[in-house]
Design a protein around this nucleic acid. Structure first.
Lengths: 112, 112
DNA sequence: TTATATACATAATTTTGTTATGTATATAAA
DNA sequence: TTTATATACATAACAAAATTATGTATATAA
């Protein structure tokens, strides 16, 4: 898997938002969902995803349970109550940042 | 100055775009312009800005000249020809990433 | 004389990725 | 049958790119 350097700082927000829309997801499922929704333009690396999930869990925003399917273990994540609040907060942060960024990148030449 | 973690990965693009719209800018001027355009929501730290400018120069995208105003040195930056191409490239990358990110963050619950 | 603004720079540290590696099972292809 | 690919997790080594802290220096307003 390869990634976009622009991803930095948005991975947690993406994970939290996916778990708001889908009550329970496991890691691999998240990579596939992101790949699907972005038509393959954003590909999560495992080296970024799993530590991010672990951190969100350690911070109390996610809780987990495991399930065995076809002899393979899946570790499911869901939002905690704290996590639910965090999504809202991170989302508004991200939306605001995107707006400011677009304002900057569409800048018209300044009038002297 | 304080910053947004979401800034990561977009600083070079912001700098290049500002220098496309304004032929010549110096570092401090860039911080003020970003602050102005984003109503204070994006504040560049010097520790991020100056190394980024130096790197863009080292990469051949920017060239510099200095000027003394009120006994203070200003180091002006302008795009090189290479830099001009880089803006276009970075901008389309950024716009595409923003679109994918919005697709992810506005996701409707998946139909099972 | 003190704080704030202007103007640059860099070192130490932290965050957050990439890349590489490892384990393990299921399944399709050669 | 062995090889490649997909599924599914994890972590270590490394790199990029920020933050935070510090330093130098001048101008100006309080």
């Amino acid at each position: 898997m390869s990634t976009n350097p622009l991803l930095k700082g948005t991975l947690q927000t993406i994970i939290l938002k996916l778990l708001e829309d889908n009550a329970e997801m496991y890691g691999y499922e998240i990579t596939q969902k992101v790949k699907e929704v972005t038509a393959g333009e954003i590909m999560l690396t495992e080296g970024a995803l799993y530590p991010a999930l672990h951190k969100l869990e350690a911070d109390g925003f996610l809780e987990t349970f495991t399930q065995v399917v076809d002899n393979r273990v899946r570790k499911y994540y869901r939002l905690t109550e704290e996590g639910g609040k965090e999504v809202t907060s991170k989302l508004s942060e991200a939306q605001s940042f995107i707006e400011q960024l677009q304002a900057l990148l569409n800048l018209k030449p300044a009038v002297k």
